[in-house]
Each structure stands twice: as C-alpha cells, then as structure tokens.
C-alpha cells in the first residue's frame, strides 16, 4: 500500500511531462510550393511538430515521401490548398513531388 502512491505519482509525473512537452513545444511550419519549388530546402523540426504543405502554384502538386522516418502520400491538390503531416519519429524525411521530380526538400526531425 505504501508503495502504490509514489508509483502513481511517478506515473502521473511522466504522463504530465510527456503531454506538457508535446503541447508546449509542438511547432507548426508551413512549406510553400511556388514555381515548382519548395520554399524551404531543409527544415529542422522536432518530434510532434506539424508541417503544412501549401500549394501556391497554378498546377497540382503531389507531395510524398518514402523515407524510413516517415512515408506518406498527400495526393494531388490544387492552388490554395494545404495538406499537412505530423512528424513522429526522429530521422531525415526526404520530401518529393511525384509530379515534378525537380522538387526536393528534407525535414530533419530530432527528439
């Protein structure tokens, strides 16, 4: 019985610190797509951050990654639309556009 309380406290502390850390430090980034280029070449982010990919071109873009740190396909979407990812694992995410092979950027995710 005497042991239970400290363990519970400890568990609560861990939970609170994890939650606190994530809500307090989670950043939102916006990467623009303009003239068939990404506005940022290398983005440094932390686990839990969200990256929005805005399309400011008259053409559709199709952002994807097949990196181990995160693989995703945001599909094609037109001008004015934005889709996002949340980075959940440390590592380097090579981001590409499936339609325009010249479009390249990367997100370096740290803990």
């Amino acid at each position: 019985m005497t042991l239970k309380r400290p363990i519970l406290h400890y568990a609560l502390y861990i939970l609170a610190s994890v939650l606190f850390q994530h809500t307090a430090s989670a950043e939102e980034y916006t990467v623009d797509q303009k003239n068939k280029k990404f506005s940022i070449e290398t983005l440094n982010a932390q686990v839990g951050d969200t990256v929005h990919f805005l399309n400011s071109d008259r053409f559709f873009h199709n952002i994807y990654s097949i990196s181990e740190a995160k693989s995703f396909d945001l599909g094609s979407y037109p001008k004015g639309k934005s889709r996002s990812i949340t980075v959940d694992k440390p590592g380097t995410i090579e981001v590409r556009c499936a339609i325009h092979p010249g479009m390249k950027m990367k997100i370096i995710v740290s803990d």
Partner: peptide, 15 residues
C-alpha cells in the same frame, strides 16, 4: 507551357 516549360519545353513532370 504549364508542363512544356522554359527553357527546354519540358519540366519533366509526370502526367
């Protein structure tokens, strides 16, 4: 010109 863009009349895009 959206795809057949300058200067080589292509942006090598896939459609």
């Amino acid at each position: 010109a959206g795809c057949h863009s300058p200067p080589n009349f292509t942006d090598s895009s896939f459609h």
